[in-house]
Computed example of a mutant assay.
Amino acid sequence: MAGTERPMAIVLMGAYLTQLLLFSTYSCWHNQREYAHASWPPVPQPLRRFAESDIIRTMGHTCGYAGGYGFYAPRVGSHFLTEFRLRTADGAHTVHHYPLLTTLEGRIRYRAFTDLFSNLLPTNQPTSASVALHRRISRAVARSLCERIAERAAVAHVACHIGVWYPAPLRGSGAEQPPYYLQLFKTHSRP
């Protein structure tokens, strides 16, 4: 039995490294095509089918290599959320939680960026001049995002809701606190 363990480990490691190499090739090719604005040739169909298969995607997310920056990047998460409601001239509505970002990397960076809205949290203390300035900047950024999205998507109106999600604590300290959402700010593009 001990003699078959080593060849089996070599085969499993070879299969893992092969699929990692193929997935990395696909990811690099796909990103270069996206960043070069389609001047690169399209990803070969067999490579695309392989990398987008359920088992490879699940394995990639489980192992961490298919998560963009994955769990190695600092401050990728944020409890602050944005919701953009786009309305076209004919009245159709769509909702986006990112400002029309298409890549996972862009979404991760945006989620870290949303920590900017932490200064909109209500406090029981008097507002200092620096906090008031930061709040005005946060509101201006949200308004600017609405204007840019409306222009980029060629829609009639964009409404933005900014809030924070308070998850339930992992360990209870006496009384259990349920998770809840607190809306902090609303703004919109010019009609």
Score class of each variant (00 low, 15 high):
K186S: 09
G64A: 05
P42G: 11
A73P: 01
A9S: 06
R109Y: 02
L170F: 02
T114M: 05
S118C: 14
P99Q: 09
A92R: 15
S24L: 02
L101C: 03
A129K: 11
P178H: 02
W40F: 15
T187M: 04
Y72F: 10
T94D: 06
P191T: 02
S118D: 14
L101W: 02
G77N: 11
V158Q: 09
R136M: 10
R190C: 03
R87T: 15
L121R: 12
R75D: 14
L100S: 08
L133Q: 14
I55P: 00
F80Q: 03
G91V: 06
E147H: 08
D115I: 02
Y69R: 07
H93E: 14
L170Q: 13
A92K: 15
P99A: 13
R111I: 01
S128Y: 06
V155I: 05
M59V: 07
F113E: 00
V158D: 06
P44S: 05
S53Y: 05
L86S: 01
G77E: 14
C160E: 01
P7I: 07
A112L: 01
P41M: 09
T82K: 00
G163W: 02
L170T: 10
S39G: 03
A38I: 07
G174K: 09
Y110H: 15
H93V: 15
H61D: 13
L20S: 05
T25N: 06
L12T: 11
R57W: 04
W165N: 04
R57N: 05
L121Y: 01
Y35I: 11
P74R: 11
S39N: 11
L120V: 11
I137Q: 08
L47I: 04
G3P: 00
T82C: 15
S144T: 07
E147G: 02
G174P: 05
T25L: 15
H157A: 03
S128A: 11
D115Y: 05
L116W: 03
R48H: 12
H93Y: 07
R87M: 10
A150C: 12
Y110N: 10
W29I: 04
L116K: 08
A159N: 11
D90A: 06
H96I: 01
R148T: 12
Y72V: 09
G172I: 03
F117N: 04
E34A: 14
Y69C: 07
T4P: 00
R148C: 10
T18G: 05
N31K: 13
G163P: 03
T103S: 15
A129N: 10
E147S: 13
D54K: 11
L17G: 04
I55F: 08
L86G: 01
D54I: 05
S24R: 00
C28V: 15
E176Q: 05
G68Q: 05
Q19C: 13
G64K: 04
V43Y: 13
T18Y: 08
A140Y: 03
I149H: 01
P167Q: 08
T187H: 06
H37A: 14
A153E: 12
V141L: 00
R148N: 15
A89T: 08
A159M: 08
L22V: 06
Q177G: 00
R171C: 12
F80D: 04
Y65I: 06
L20K: 10
Y16L: 08
A142S: 13
R109F: 01
A38L: 14
E151D: 07
C63F: 14
A168V: 03
S78H: 03
P74D: 11
A92S: 14
P179D: 01
L182M: 07
L100Y: 05
